[in-house]
Amino acid sequence: MLCSTIEHATLSPMLADDGYLVERLRTGDDTAFEELVNHHAGPLLAVTRRILRNEEEARDAVQETFVAAFRGISAFQSESRVSTWLHRIAVNCALMKLRIRVRREADVDALLPHFRPDGHQDHSSVSWSESAEEILQREQSCALVRQCIDQLPEPYRVVLVLRDIEQLPADVVAEKLQITRDNLKVKLHRARQALRTLLDPHMRGAAL
């Protein structure tokens, strides 16, 4: 999951010692809390932005994450990473806000592949001219991918973000979204297909 990248990218040598930090947090050390916030707020904001796509709500979710973390520090399991623990809380805080917005089952059929009566694809698929690695070298292309993700109908966008980007386990996502594992699997497959359809006209020629 991305938070593993976060862990390696952001933790100073001192903060890498989670046990020491947690011990200080448990004793009410204000400096430890400041260190925690300064080191983790940025990556957590990236997570809540991805889920909520609303800056104000994303910032509120980060604030609530730290409040919940501070309250729950006594329950923190020392075998976990602090960044993983905060990531989980941030996802929960973001999803609590999202539930208020997501109620309607959006239609994604127009973005799924179509087939002829004989079972063949209606329009032949063609390979893209560059690999994902090459495409991701260009910031403009990354922005385009993010725009296409944002165009997905909300329930599908959320499933794709939680499973393919945040890489949360299927059981966890199904429980958080209050859907069955089978329903989650169907939604994820449709979300990927819809995103592929949105990317396809841009990626055939590539060099965006």
Partner: peptide, 13 residues
């Protein structure tokens, strides 16, 4: 598509 979604988010981060 899966690689692009993940990679673009990492770049954003």
């Amino acid at each position: 598509t899966i690689d692009l979604a993940r990679g673009a988010a990492e770049r954003e981060e």
